[in-house]
């Protein structure tokens, strides 16, 4: 059985590169709406992202490392050097994983432009250019997880897609390196 990595308490999420997230994801495009549960194990350079139906039936499984990415969807396996291109080409959904993994910490990076913040100085709306797409991240609610203040509900929009991410659990992991 998978060895479960050591989790620990942190003061803020910025310095944490190794984390595990359990939550709910919703994707809305003009053609379709989808929602499922999401599990994301982020241990650079490796990551594993799975999306299931609420009953636990696997929808997609992505694993990526330095060599490239492997995606399992509808019983078929696909591979590509780049995880985001792989998901976009196979599922038609442009999931900005790189940006999302930073947005879900709720801390602006040089790539983000903070449009407005709340009374506690946390971002309410941020924008970022990802390749030729302009993305807007809306922070709807916050929570404390593993000792850090992180978002609970985020809505991320580009002109053709809205991604809703609710973080039910976020664990800071001790790096395995």
């Amino acid at each position: 059985c998978a060895s479960s990595p050591q989790t620990y308490q942190v003061s803020d999420s910025q310095t944490v590169d190794d984390w595990q997230l359990n939550g709910r994801i919703g994707v809305v495009t003009p053609e379709r709406k989808f929602s499922g549960t999401v599990f994301w194990l982020h241990q650079p350079p490796q990551q594993r992202l799975t999306i299931n139906t609420v009953l636990g039936i696997s929808v997609l499984q992505l694993s990526a490392d330095k060599q490239g990415a492997t995606l399992l969807v509808d019983g078929n396996t696909y591979q590509d050097r780049n995880a985001e291109q792989l998901i976009a080409s196979v599922t038609g959904l442009p999931l900005p994983l790189q940006a999302l993994s930073s947005w879900l910490k709720g801390i602006p990076t040089p790539a983000d432009k903070v449009v407005d913040s709340d009374s506690e100085g946390r971002p309410k709306t941020m924008t970022r250019q990802v390749e030729n797409q302009q993305w807007t991240a809306h922070y709807r609610s916050w929570q404390s997880q593993s000792g850090a203040t992180i978002p609970r509900l985020i809505e991320v929009k580009s002109d053709s897609i809205t991604i809703k991410l609710q973080i039910n659990q976020w664990l800071a992991l001790a790096p395995e390196r």
Partner: peptide, 15 residues
């Protein structure tokens, strides 16, 4: 009580 595990036994979801 619902528990979802992947092929490696990793718990993906609980409810």
């Amino acid at each position: 009580v619902q528990t979802v595990t992947d092929i490696n036994g990793q718990v993906l979801q609980q409810g």
